[in-house]
Write a protein that binds this DNA or RNA. Structure first.
Lengths: 346, 346
DNA sequence: AATATTTTAGAAATCGATTTCCTATAGCCT
DNA sequence: AGGCTATAGGAAATCGATTTCTAAAATATT
């Protein structure tokens, strides 16, 4: 791909300009601006005043090159405009600003190829750390190894691969899923279906496991046919629900690993003239804003996405950044909460 | 604020390492990697192979410093996790990736102070261009002048300040607002209220103007009391609607400049046992996802946020990037569309 | 075959800040 | 007052890639 060259911008004021106009050495200017103790407050004042006067702005690029780190953190998410991820990013951003770090954000649109490119880009940009939530397509982890090879810190969150050793921040998915089923069972639902994402992702395996465990613990029947692993959109949720609800042995409740899928199930019910919660219970994941607005309102597992973002960034600043080579690698579990709404209350 | 120092990462492979191991000059390596025509394909091949073998990764920082530009674009929005802005960012990101540019994203949380800081940060990072949508608080533009002083391109979008000369990408807000009122009028609503944002923002002035013009053109009465300028949240929308709907002369329709405000109006109606669309018409702005999910579904002005993002980035790559000093500055209007739903259909 | 021209590769300067090492001066002590 | 220690400020190297300038080698021309 050809890259259009760009006109160089006009030069801006550098520490050399400040030094010359004050008749001191550039190194002194640098020290003054960095508040070094080896510089008198008289000179510091001079330099600061002159910097203001001439509109000096620090060139992070030059400093980064010399220092070897950038105070930039890279974030890779499947979709920036899904509110779960948007909230995580917002939380990360808030904490990063507090620590004077910037954020470079990439989206993979659920494609492995784009994920690999994003990793490349971030390494090139010299980011200090990469925070990543894997795409649905991702099954190989060579590109994550690449991050390690370049000695860049990284933290996986939500959609993680256990195949690679790293700090992680996740919900307790198995437990959350278990509790969701417990909730449905307590509301009197007996035949609970599971609509999850691709089973090669850890996250969905755990949720499925929690689902199975709860069925067993509560003596509920496990129907192989009620378990679907590739349901990730409203459309596929609707389609699959339509199908299941028209078989002989039909589910009377759905545990969906996404609120969007819950929505699809709801649409299916409406089409079949069934009602929730009376005929069918529904609970989803993520507590998207719309869950409280639809009729009936949708129960959901709140994953505390904004807080997850904060915790990811805080983990970086409190531990990962200072990580020694042989230090223990940590997993943080973010709380979850069953938000009971109409769709599962009978 | 103290900044914790960071351990320098282990060194990675540089062009010098490649050069040494191939017994050629670093400059030749650079040229080879940049596919310069002054290098034989034999050497290019050698260099590329060796680069792969040693896992060489280009150091953007060093290149940026030398070149004077960064291929990084800074984006400043009020809130990353509002779907309108999240969509815009997603659109921008898509186009930037196509042009091998990265994105640094800042959120202001509607605070001028954070906006000023964000601008500072982006200038320091040597971004090539800043894309900004102003915070609700922003009334001064000194910080935007600062962008210009540093010869950094910039484009304002959506919430713009006309006080400063720049490329802009916006909806035709006056027209959209006008059409929204026309739509309400055609549905038989007579007493239309306007719930808008702070009048110091251009955007809201235009929408108010469109509203006024439409009232006049359609011979509808203009009630001073029906026009509110600081309604930007669901809560304030509800509160103000409750108030207006309990006065003597009450509105029978609301034009809200945000879907969140529409939602508040709807809540007010429910509390007062009024119904929409029968008693009161509602139309909002942004076509947020939830507008089609609530009961009754909410009409809205689709602002095509994702497309707006794409157009912003495309404007940069097609024109701004190549901008000559005395070139004409352009405004792009992004289409809008009235999405008629239940809340305004009677 | 001798000269002119074009290619190809290398040497060295450069971008702007940081940092290490060194020197001069001020301040301190006996 | 002489000598010693702190302290403040400067000189120069450095980070890694790009780019300009130069020169040698390869090719073309007459």
């Amino acid at each position: 791909m050809a890259i259009v060259p760009m006109a160089k911008r006009e030069k801006r004021i550098t520490i050399y300009d400040l030094a010359k106009s004050l008749n001191i050495a550039p190194s002194s200017v640098s020290k003054a601006l960095n508040n070094s103790h080896a510089i008198s407050s008289k000179i510091k004042k001079m330099v600061e005043d002159k910097a203001k006067e001439l509109n000096y702005i620090h060139n992070t690029n030059a400093a980064n090159l010399r220092r070897g780190f950038s105070r930039i953190i890279g974030v890779i998410v499947p979709k920036i405009n899904e509110s779960f991820f948007a909230n995580i990013i917002a939380g990360i951003e808030k904490v990063c600003v507090q620590h004077q770090h910037s954020l470079i954000i990439c989206q993979t649109e659920e494609s492995l190829e784009k994920e690999v490119n994003a990793v490349q880009t971030l390494i090139r940009q010299n980011v200090d750390c990469i925070l990543i939530s894997l795409s649905l397509e991702t099954q190989s982890t060579a590109h994550l190894e690449e991050i390690k090879n370049n000695h860049i810190h990284f933290i996986q969150f939500d959609r993680i691969s256990p195949a690679i050793d790293s700090y992680t921040v996740v919900n307790d998915n198995e437990e959350a899923s278990y509790q969701a089923v417990v909730h449905l069972a307590k509301q009197g639902y007996q035949n609970i279906a599971y609509f999850g994402g691709p089973a090669h992702l850890n996250l969905y395996q755990e949720r499925k496991q929690g689902y199975k465990n709860a069925l067993k613990d509560f003596g509920l029947t496990f129907y192989e046919d009620f378990v679907k692993d590739e349901i990730i959109s409203t459309a596929s949720g609707k389609q699959e629900a339509l199908h299941l609800l028209q078989t002989d042995v039909k589910p009377d409740a759905f545990l969906c690993t996404s609120d969007y899928v819950s929505l699809g199930v709801l649409e299916a019910l409406q089409q079949l003239n069934l009602s929730s919660p009376k005929d069918v219970g529904i609970i989803g994941f993520a507590n998207e804003m719309f869950t409280q607005l639809v009729q009936p309102s949708l129960s959901s597992v709140n994953q505390f996405s904004y807080e997850m973002g904060e915790q990811i960034a805080e983990l970086y600043f409190s531990e990962v950044m200072k990580q020694k080579d042989n230090e223990e690698i940590k997993t943080i579990k973010v709380k979850t909460e069953i938000v009971q709404r109409a769709s599962s209350s009978r």
